[in-house]
Design a protein around this nucleic acid. Sequence first.
DNA 1: CTGATTCTTGACCATATGGTCAGCTTTGAC
DNA 2: GTCAAAGCTGACCATATGGTCAAGAATCAG
Lengths: 227, 227
Amino acid sequence: MAKARHGNDTEGGAIRRRNERAILAAAERVFARHGYRGASLQEIAEQAGLPKSNVLYYMGSKRKLYVRLLERMMERWNAMLDDISPEDDPAEVLSAFIRSKMQISRRHPEGSRLFASEILGGAPFLQEYLKGELRDWVQSRAAVFREWAERGLMDPIDPVWLIFLIWSSTQHYADFEAQVLGITGRDALGDDDLEEITEFLTRVVIKGCGVKHPAGRVEDPATLTER
Amino acid sequence: MAKARHGNDTEGGAIRRRNERAILAAAERVFARHGYRGASLQEIAEQAGLPKSNVLYYMGSKRKLYVRLLERMMERWNAMLDDISPEDDPAEVLSAFIRSKMQISRRHPEGSRLFASEILGGAPFLQEYLKGELRDWVQSRAAVFREWAERGLMDPIDPVWLIFLIWSSTQHYADFEAQVLGITGRDALGDDDLEEITEFLTRVVIKGCGVKHPAGRVEDPATLTER
DNA sequence: CTGATTCTTGACCATATGGTCAGCTTTGAC
DNA sequence: GTCAAAGCTGACCATATGGTCAAGAATCAG
């Protein structure tokens, strides 16, 4: 019997690894599209090319599978959250922040939508994470932003609202992809589109918050993001 | 037998009107929380305080109920979309745009989440609307924004990305409410919070896009939104 | 080759789903 | 009061759901 073996991606034999990969990928798609309740193990199994029983064999239950996907997504997220200090250049930090957030949406659109669907449904599985880890992370960033404001490096805006602004506007291109494509008339967003959007967001945020260069004197803030 | 009578909110007898109201309200909540597939008529019926058969009696089918909710939300949305002209003051228009979008999220959070869930799932029911009406609306606004840019009233940013920025950042406070509350540690967002966020967004967008006053000469653009 | 471990899967189960329907009660115009 | 229209709802149906299990197949270390 397979004991409590439902661990991470790397342990286990080659067969297990291959099948788990297929299941996780399929499940991410299906959960992202239909939410936790709306997703069915049958559909996940079909998309993974396995019988339903096999999915249960590897994942234990629908709930465990879902939680595992969320955890995987939180890991990706956390990998982005490197530390910053008040000594850093605000423009650089904000720019890197926007860029890396955008890249996660780009690289893991299904995971991004899965996360969105979880939050939309009231975050029944992520309450702890939101009120713990993530909250701490936001507060520590907010403190740095506030210090920058005090030093006159940026306008005295509310840092938390700024973080939400960046999160929402970057997340949008994964979560609302259907809307973006429908309205722009494209059938996909290319790397060049994403680069353009990244630069647009960076520019508006940095200029909009009155970010100034720390060392030199004030130039037009908009030029900071232009090569 | 009740013929094809599934129309809008105002026709029909008093009983019908009352029951339909209850059903629609309950359904909006449940669909918003669990998505189209994940929502069950049973749960909707319970929340409306009616037997399931009664829900079917009034709404015909799950699909019809869902479509009707979407249509109602699109009506609210359209009510916001008044016309603008290149002669208007960009700052005023953008400010009003952000404010009214924010108020919709505020007044109809469930509807907003319902919409989000539909788009997240690939917009199976709203493709037409996105590629038709809404697209036209965006293009016409974009044209005005572009003209403003040409007249030097704002930076030459891509108007479509700007509209998405405003949509995403305002929608966020309804759709990701769970996240916002978890991180800020509040148990609800008050009117004052919303007002503060609205002013923040307005300020960042207007300043970030380099919006200038049309009549007089250039002052600090940020002061435009301050009373 | 052997024996244990891992893998595979169809049959099966209790429950829940969206939807139908027949027969009942209530309502309201005349 | 009459009677048709509107409203109501429990019983019922085919299907799909998440999950269990037992029995067989493949794998692999010794």
